[in-house]
Design a protein around this nucleic acid. Sequence first.
DNA 1: CGTACCTTTGATAAGACTCAAGACTGGTGG
DNA 2: CCACCAGTCTTGAGTCTTATCAAAGGTACG
Lengths: 217, 217
Amino acid sequence: VQFPRAALSDRGRARLALISTRLRIGPHTILYARHDPARYIYNIVDGMVRSYRERPDGRRQVLGFLFGGDLCGLASRGRYVNTGETLTPVTVFRIPLEQLAALAAGDASVSWGLLCKVTQTLREAQRHTLLLSRSYAPGRMAMFLHMMEQTYPSPRGRIVVPIGLADLAEFVELPPETIARTLVELERRGVVAREDRRAYRVKNRRVFETLVAGGHL
Amino acid sequence: VQFPRAALSDRGRARLALISTRLRIGPHTILYARHDPARYIYNIVDGMVRSYRERPDGRRQVLGFLFGGDLCGLASRGRYVNTGETLTPVTVFRIPLEQLAALAAGDASVSWGLLCKVTQTLREAQRHTLLLSRSYAPGRMAMFLHMMEQTYPSPRGRIVVPIGLADLAEFVELPPETIARTLVELERRGVVAREDRRAYRVKNRRVFETLVAGGHL
DNA sequence: CGTACCTTTGATAAGACTCAAGACTGGTGG
DNA sequence: CCACCAGTCTTGAGTCTTATCAAAGGTACG
């Protein structure tokens, strides 16, 4: 599937606006929780949200990072399947699920728009799968940076990672120690440079791409 | 998002039937290839399809296994993003993308139906992510069996794995040697038993669940 | 019966995880 | 302005798992 990034019709957009609420939310706030009755879905305008599940051992399994333009709050049989938590300050449109369903059932342009969004989310999920499939830590980190570079564009080749090491660790599914070590290693080898505590720059694009593609240092 | 598994309206279903073609396809056949112009999407009726990408080093990165009821042939900007290949003999509905788009743009029930399918695919992708996030091999294998058990139901607790070791290896992203070793180990510990070359049975459900949940042997 | 492929086993080395301690940061209050 | 504190990040040493290479055992098919 997919599909022109066909915009909503004006009428559809107007109707959506009628039922949705714009909210500003602080960092590290739960938007919705797994197993809770799903009443809203969220369309992110700006900021970074993570979607995760709790594991029996208390650790978190991160399913994805979501950014402006993404939809979150997926549900199955009326319950949220994941938990959504803001990482940075976030602006969202909160859309009541029932009204949305009613709207979408009658307006093809609305359900079409939703379809495009979900499709996009699916592609994100597959990128994440790709990331996890790289078992070599430097490769996985390179892929993460590559992902941030594309998803969260920033001027002049700066790669901004607006989150802490622990959050990052859960996303890439490596212990924080390994992350730190690996970043130091990448820096030592001249592949990337650290501009700022939370910003990097690719110094050797060739080696970087090799790592992303699956090569070893 | 998600959404009653709302059936298509009868009218929508009839229209879909008009434009789609039912095909039977042999095993190990390419349905569609990454980067090719996307002309069709496929609704699987029966059989098993894998969606993958080629890596620069020639190995395959499997994005998912697809079964009856799943939709495949996702595209972006008019090109397939993954390659779809049958593993077993497969029955599919082949639906021309352009006609589908036209239909969905006008018929909310059709685009709604698509939305449900894609949402389901997304959940599958997230299950796969969950699988890969388990870095401990026995845990990953347990999770794979668990997944096959749910997705591909079979009588009396038999877990059928209708594919070869090499294909399996690409899906779970472990070398075939590790798979073999791990399965032998699981058997030796009495967690699962091998009924047949390609069918297993859980012998110790408690330990099995522990592994799925993230515990170690 | 032989051959080709798939699966299993073995030995080795590389890499990642764990636990633990040390450095750094940013923010607080004296 | 400085000292302190809590949290975050980095480094170190050792253990364990897994990847890799190589070869033997099995199986299916001609």
